[in-house]
Each structure stands twice: as structure tokens, then as C-alpha cells.
């Protein structure tokens, strides 16, 4: 017979260990990624979204606090910094493509970044949400650390901005391809750049899984829109407020 008492005490011990949550995070990613590949990269089965749902479901059903989970997951989270530096490599290898298209990149960057802020502002007014929330929404298309910084400067709530930013990334990565197909975009570079600009790292991850050039342009779009948005959002607020 299995000693239930003993199993329970082992579980109590293991769930307090970072190793458990680290293993769970990697495991759910392996499962989600293999589903994603088996469905030929079906966009709605975005591996980030599916693994996040899997892990959250487990945390909620076992009543585990996020802080405990993060004790293990922080080792993975830490790698976000180094992997950002590593993005220099694909950009370096396709540098000739970026130089060739620098004018296209510049014009799309300015129009795209301005549009992202403007459309968020107009929609927020339509939905009549309070000012603090509008301010937290404005920088949402750029990578979380930049967005949170902007939010703080303009008087938004940084933690809310972080949540909004991640949702933006998942939406862009999982639904973007339908928009591109609808308006019949053929060039992978255009699709990638747009994904990086509008949905930062999560969009870039999706672009990289589809096509090398798309991935490079996504990384460039993400980096550049981070710079322009941090200048444009405070400027925009001076004009409208």
C-alpha cells in the first residue's frame, strides 16, 4: 500500500523547493512547444500563452502563491537580459538588409509608433476609463522594462503597465498573422518589423520561429520602437493634456 501521509509530506517539502517550479515551467514549455510544432506553428496555440495557462492552472488549483512559484521561475526570468544582448547576433548577420532598407524602417517606425499611441488613446476615451489607467495603457506596445519606466514618468501604474504589455505581446503574437493574411502582406520583413514594433519580445519570438528575416526585422522593430516610444509618449501627453 502507498503511504498517503508520507506522499503528502514529500509534496509539502517539494513544492517549497525552487527546483519544482523551475522543472514545471520548462516541462510545460516543452509540451506547449511540441503541440505548436505538431500543428505546424498554428498561431492560436502560441507556446507562451499555452504554457502560461498550464502553469497558472496548476498554481490556482493547488493554491500556490505567485511569489513561491517565482522563487523557482526567477532563474528563467533572469535570462531575459542576456537573451536581449544576444539579439545583436541575428541583427549583425543581416546588417546589409537593414542598411538597404533604412529609409523604410525609419518611416514605418515613426508612423507605427505614433499610431500605436494615438489609437490606444482614442480607444481609451471611447471606453471612458479613468485617467490613471489610460496613462498605464499608452506605452503598452514596447518591451516591459521600457513600458514600465515610461508609465512611471507619466504618472501611470507600472505594475498595471507590465500586465497590459504582456497581454499586448500575446495578442500580437497569436492574432497578428490573421491581420497580415487579411491585408495580404507578402514580405516576411514587413510582417516581422510590424510584430516587433507592436508586440515587442513575444511578437519577436513568434517572428523568429517562422522566418529568419522576419525575426531580425522584429528585433530591430522592437528595439527602435522602445526608443521612439519613450520619447513620443511624454511629448504626446504635453499636446493632448
Amino acid at each position: 500500500m502507498i503511504d498517503q501521509q508520507k506522499l503528502y509530506s514529500i509534496w509539502v517539502y517539494l513544492q517549497a523547493e525552487p527546483l519544482f517550479w523551475l522543472t514545471l515551467t520548462i516541462g510545460s514549455y516543452i509540451i506547449s512547444d511540441s503541440i505548436y510544432r505538431r500543428t505546424n506553428l498554428f498561431p492560436l496555440l502560441n507556446p507562451v500563452a499555452i504554457s502560461v495557462l498550464l502553469v497558472s492552472l496548476i498554481l490556482i488549483s493547488f493554491d500556490i502563491k505567485y511569489e513561491r512559484y517565482f522563487e523557482g521561475a526567477k532563474f528563467i526570468h533572469f535570462l531575459l537580459g542576456p537573451v536581449t544582448v544576444a539579439l545583436a547576433i541575428p541583427i549583425y548577420r543581416k546588417w546589409h538588409l537593414i542598411i538597404l532598407n533604412s529609409k523604410a524602417i525609419f518611416i514605418s517606425l515613426i508612423i507605427g509608433s505614433v499610431f500605436a499611441i494615438l489609437v490606444t488613446y482614442i480607444l481609451s476615451l471611447q471606453f471612458e476609463i479613468q485617467k490613471e489607467l489610460i496613462l498605464s495603457l499608452l506605452p503598452r506596445s514596447v518591451t516591459a522594462p521600457i513600458a514600465m519606466g515610461i508609465s512611471e514618468i507619466i504618472g501611470g501604474i507600472p505594475s498595471l503597465t507590465a500586465i497590459i504589455t504582456i497581454i499586448t505581446g500575446v495578442i500580437g503574437a497569436s492574432l497578428g498573422v490573421f491581420v497580415f493574411d487579411l491585408i495580404k502582406l507578402k514580405k516576411m520583413e514587413a510582417r516581422g518589423f510590424s510584430l516587433g514594433l507592436a508586440s515587442h519580445g513575444i511578437g519577436t519570438a513568434r517572428a523568429m520561429s517562422r522566418d529568419k528575416n522576419a525575426g531580425v526585422f522584429a528585433a530591430v522593430g522592437m528595439g527602435l520602437s522602445g526608443l521612439t516610444t519613450s520619447i513620443l509618449v511624454p511629448l504626446f501627453l504635453k499636446i493632448v493634456m
Binding site: 523604410a104 514605418s108 499610431f115 489609437v119 503598452r140 495578442i171 500580437g172 497580415f180 514587413a190 518589423f193
Partner: peptide
């Protein structure tokens, strides 16, 4: 908030991609 994000993101993706495709 979710509605604003979905509409805003999809419109931004469309505009940016559309312009880029023509300039590349």
C-alpha cells in the same frame, strides 16, 4: 482593457506592416 489592447494592437500591426511592405 482587453478590448482596447486587441483593437489597438491589430490596427497597429496592420498599419505598420502595410507601410513597410510598400517601402521595402
Amino acid at each position: 482593457v482587453i478590448t482596447i489592447i486587441i483593437l489597438g494592437t491589430l490596427l497597429t500591426l496592420a498599419i505598420t506592416g502595410f507601410i513597410m511592405e510598400r517601402l521595402l
